[in-house]
């Protein structure tokens, strides 16, 4: 095994995160169902959490609770974890907002399919009317 592969293997969480990110993006791009798009966004953000947490991790480290007696302990970086908690909150709120919007869209158009919405909108615009 070459050095490259060993580095990949050692840093597998990063690879994993990037893969997840790609999957998230792919989901957003290819699915016209609005719910699936929201799910895609969640996957994408999830990947970033993994990236952060992995970056803060130290092999063999323990939770950063100070133990004055044992000075040989290594701690994992606490900051990313704290931050990711915030990130998750943000992501939840974004998800909530988008779900609310999807509901509204469904109320206006009767569908949650982006292509369908576009078609309806184009038709209505062509007729010069407004959707209310």
């Amino acid at each position: 095994m070459g050095e490259f592969w060993s580095r990949i293997l050692q840093n597998y969480p990063y690879v994993f995160a990037l893969a997840l990110f790609a999957i998230g993006i792919y989901t957003i791009l290819t699915h016209s169902n609005l719910f699936k798009k929201v799910i895609g966004i969640n996957i994408m953000e999830g990947s970033i959490y993994i990236l952060f947490i992995a970056a803060g991790n130290v092999r063999g480290g323990v939770a950063p609770i100070l133990d004055m007696t044992d000075t040989t302990l290594t701690y994992v970086h606490p900051l990313p974890q704290a931050l990711m908690l915030t990130g998750i909150v943000v992501s939840v709120s974004v998800t909530a907002l988008s779900l609310a919007l999807i509901m509204k869209l469904y109320r206006f158009y009767g569908t949650v399919d982006a292509k369908e919405i576009m078609r309806i909108r184009t038709e209505v615009r062509a007729n010069g009317a407004r959707i209310s």
Binding site: I25, I28, L29, T30, A114, R121, R125
Partner: peptide
Amino acid sequence: DFEGGGIFTVLSFSNLNSNAFLIL
């Protein structure tokens, strides 16, 4: 802007997918 059709389907600014694709 609105209509789409032909080559413009891909580029249509109303098309969320293609917009996201644009970013990438």
